[in-house]
Nucleic acid binder design. Structure first.
Length: 834
DNA sequence: AGCCCGACTTGGGTCGAGGACA
DNA sequence: TGTCCTCGACCCAAGTCGGGCT
């Protein structure tokens, strides 16, 4: 079949990256990527004979940059898509049903530990699954796996409830649409109305609250016995500062004329239950906002005279500015990156700029610089700090608390809210991630004159530090930040914003999950459509279809274009290059395998071998035809185009929603599969962590194995061995006791048997608990659970699971997480399904 | 329409407080 | 009581995405 070359595109050689200023199209340098991507200006390209930029560093970039952590083959062994390749002529979904079972299996032969996550049975037709590759012991890979499996409608009451929720949501959405009484086209255009559709305020919110109230009685009854001890425990654990701050908050709010439920004494009740309020925000983020401004790091403290910088064997007293920058380097001496030439070069250039003319003349080579005296001095200072007495540490802590109390909170609409980062970033050396071209550059000290303050007009404007003034004071209620400045290394804006526990953040989070839940209702249609796109005559549409398939199936990030030379060379879906995938007609007994190997966000390696449907496979071949390795795989599309398309399928839908949707769906499904009521608490927790882990694997959330990992594993093994020994002894004693009882048959011997039995049972339980803990830790070695828990998993799923299986919420969410998800903890009933 | 930039979310690393344990 | 280890708070880089300007 001949494909239509959309709008005369010359194909193949467009790069997906933004050009740096020096490469602007005007001076005859490569055509702007975006133009090419959209196929609009490609003719110009061809006519003008403009040569496309090549990426010289591509091959190099394939190499994992954080080797100790991402050598997938050593650490992870997961996630394979077991998609049964469907004949491309077979009718597309839903007729095309992959029927392969999906399993997440992780094994570690060395420790003899084997984890098997149960067959995944997602609500939707998509499945994320993982298969063991035990034959391949020497090369375990970090592969995310997911599988499509078109299932019949989920059964049972859950589905019923699900539908009720969905219908309800849909109804609310419809109502909103009707209320806005605008034509569809207008709605599409109007961002406001589409946003409203998903804002969990207004009707949806009210309904949630109604539902909550309905269940309140039951809830109270159920939780009363648990709740008391928890809140008591909480009170006990809460640092005094917190109690104080709550008191102050109450006072502040009262002073602002707001009604706090003043008669309540429980500190929980002091918290602002914004989710119970019905506020129409019409684009406004706040009505009143008052704060103290950011807190600045201390002035530079000059080194004592006995600590010197040595150049070429000669001690030199540096000027204050040059000395300060030198200390940044000295403090980093033991880090690997000070050995990198890019780092050294950037540092040296920036450092020289801080030097006096005289110093510049004198100091010409970094290799002749000796920072070791300075480094030693800082090491000693650290030791000194460590060795401080309890009292000294207490003083420091109190000072810190005082600062937090003073600068760490703001007053938003009369409520005291915690600020996320109230400190201005201190000066230092920039350390990007991966092979960042700007690593080592000087991050300059931020002065009040650099800072824009945002607060309400009638509030008390924060005072700039003595002798200084703010760059600007503004009163923009459409944004959520309190202060901002431009950072000098990349020219990015930096913000002071609220803590995740705040209303502004919480509401947005809630909204995010509502959009993801809405996607659940549409995803089948969207999948059907993108599968149809695979057969489209137009190349652009085909690329869109395949890219969406990857985003959906593999939870890839969208992949915005980046400025070449400005950041590390990392990619996402749309910016994948030919060199990032390898096609295998057959691999490991599977047909049509696509091998992904690229550096994603934060230069974390993504490696995955994925069997795909034959039509996808053939399309990929087509996209790669006549291209060089460094050319874009999807050269006709970009994230803007993709998101515009998605937004047409469902207002509010963007590429990243798929990640949230698939993550939460996976969690829900895994929890349903892995938990049973008769499990012990530890078993339930292991199940939860395994479900969480399946999501982390899907999203490729990796971490470096903790430095103390091997040691702590050994400790646990020792403990287990010890416990086993104790158990063996106890069993022997029980046997003896039974023997004796058989002989004597007295009350005393009977009691002894009972006692010994109890001891054996207790030890068995303890042993099992230890073993479970160890399994959990082992499985978590290189997987970061936190990211998905904080950003991708609808907390209501976890809360409902806790309620359903009587797991204390503290077991899965720590204090910070409970604060962030307070809305979900408060409103969710045990029958909630994502 | 295309591009740039502002606003906000997502992300892993670091480090020290404090709990566990000898 | 001292030491070790874990985990949470914090840090700040690096993404996504939308809006507004040209």
């Amino acid at each position: 079949m001949k494909l239509e070359e959309s709008e005369g595109h010359d194909g193949a050689k467009t790069s997906n990256r933004k050009r740096t200023a020096s490469e602007s199209p005007r001076d005859g340098s490569p055509t702007d990527r975006k133009k090419s991507k959209n196929g609009e200006k490609d003719k110009t390209d061809v006519k003008g004979g403009i040569h496309k930029a090549k990426h010289s560093s591509c091959k190099q970039s394939q190499k994992p940059l954080q080797e100790p952590k991402i050598t997938s083959s050593e650490n992870l062994n997961v996630a394979h898509v077991e998609t049964k390749a469907v004949d491309e002529d077979a009718s597309p979904s839903p007729g095309n049903k992959d029927t392969g079972l999906c399993k997440v299996i992780e094994s570690d032969e060395r420790k003899g530990i084997k984890l098997e996550l149960q067959e995944i049975d997602l609500f939707g037709p998509i499945e994320h699954s993982d298969t063991e590759r035990s034959e391949n012991k020497s090369k375990k890979s970090v592969d995310s796996k997911k599988d499509y499996k078109h299932k019949d409608k989920p059964k049972g009451s859950q589905r019923g409830k699900h539908l009720t929720d969905e219908k309800h949501l849909e109804k609310k959405m419809c109502q909103r649409s009707a209320n806005s009484s605008e034509s569809n086209s207008k709605r599409k255009k109007s961002k406001d109305s589409s946003e409203k559709d998903f804002t969990p305020t207004g009707d949806v919110k009210k309904e949630n609250i109604k539902e909550k109230t309905r269940n309140d009685k039951v809830k109270k009854e159920r939780s009363s016995k648990d709740k008391k001890p928890i809140s008591e425990k909480k009170r006990k654990k809460e640092p005094d500062g917190q109690v104080e701050s709550n008191k102050k908050m109450k006072k502040d709010a009262e002073m602002n004329g707001k009604n706090l439920k003043s008669t309540r004494t429980e500190e929980d009740d002091c918290k602002w239950k914004w989710w119970e309020e019905d506020n129409a925000n019409n684009g406004k983020k706040w009505s009143t906002l008052e704060h103290k401004g950011p807190f600045f790091p201390p002035e530079y403290e000059p080194l004592p005279s006995n600590v010197c910088f040595v150049y070429n064997g000669k001690s030199i007293k540096l000027s204050l500015a040059a000395e300060e920058v030198a200390t940044f380097y000295a403090k980093m001496l033991d880090h690997e990156y000070t050995t990198k030439s890019v780092f050294q070069e950037n540092f040296f250039n920036d450092w020289r700029e801080e030097m006096t003319e005289e110093e510049r003349e004198q100091i010409n080579k970094l290799s002749k610089c000796d920072f070791s005296h300075m480094a030693k001095y800082f090491l000693e200072k650290t030791e000194e700090k460590k060795a401080m007495t309890k009292e000294q540490k207490q003083v420091l802590k109190e000072e810190n608390n005082r600062l937090t109390e003073e600068y760490g909170f703001c007053l938003l609409d009369g409520h005291k809210e915690k600020i996320g980062n109230f400190r201005v970033e201190p000066p230092g050396l920039f350390r990007g991630r991966g092979e960042h071209p700007k690593m080592g550059k000087l991050k300059k000290r931020i002065l009040p004159e650099d800072i824009t303050i945002n607060c309400s007009k009638d509030s008390k404007i924060p005072e700039a530090p003595k002798g200084h003034r703010w760059r600007k004071v503004q009163h923009d209620d459409t944004v959520t930040w309190l202060a901002s400045w431009v950072e000098n290394v990349q020219g990015n804006l930096k913000y002071i914003m609220l803590n995740p526990s705040s209303k502004l953040k919480g509401e947005k989070d809630w909204q995010k999950y509502e959009v993801a839940r809405k996607l659940k209702l549409k995803v089948e249609t969207i999948r059907r459509l993108y599968r149809e796109d695979w057969k489209n005559r137009e190349m652009k549409i085909r690329q869109r279809g395949v890219a969406l398939y990857f985003i959906d199936k593999l939870a890839l990030r969208a992949g915005n274009e980046k400025e070449e030379g400005e950041t590390a060379d990392t990619v996402g879906c749309c910016s994948l290059r030919v060199e990032h995938i390898t096609l295998h007609e057959e691999k490991g007994g599977q047909e049509f395998v696509v091998e992904f190997d690229f550096l994603g966000k934060d230069s974390i390696r993504y490696y995955n071998e994925v069997p795909v449907e034959s039509r996808v496979f053939r399309n990929l071949k087509l996209f790669m035809e006549n291209k060089d390795p460094e050319d874009d795989l999807f050269d006709r599309i970009n994230t803007i185009y993709l998101n515009k398309h998605l937004n047409q399928s469902m207002p509010g839908l963007t590429a990243k929603v798929f990640r949230t949707f698939n993550a939460s769906t996976t969690l829900q499904d895994q929890l349903n599969k892995l938990t049973t009521a008769d499990m012990t608490l530890e078993e339930k927790l292991l199940s939860y962590n395994r479900a969480n882990r399946a999501v982390a694997i899907l999203c490729n959330h990796q971490r470096a194995a903790p430095k103390t990992f091997e040691k702590s594993m050994q400790n646990m093994l020792d403990k287990i061995a010890q416990k086993q020994q104790q158990l063996d002894v106890a069993k022997m004693e029980l046997k003896e006791a039974k023997k004796e009882h058989k002989k004597a048959g007295t009350e005393r011997t009977r009691k002894l048997v009972e006692k010994k039995e109890a001891a054996v049972k207790r030890l068995e339980e303890q042993l099992k608990k230890l073993q479970l803990q160890m399994t959990d830790r082992e499985e978590n070695k290189v997987i970061a659970l936190g990211t998905s828990k904080l950003n991708y998993l609808d907390p209501r799923i976890s809360v409902a699971w806790c309620k359903k299986f009587n797991v204390p919420i503290e077991k899965i969410y720590n204090k910070t997480q409970r604060d962030k998800f307070a809305w979900a903890i408060d409103m969710t009933e045990e029958d909630f399904q994502f």
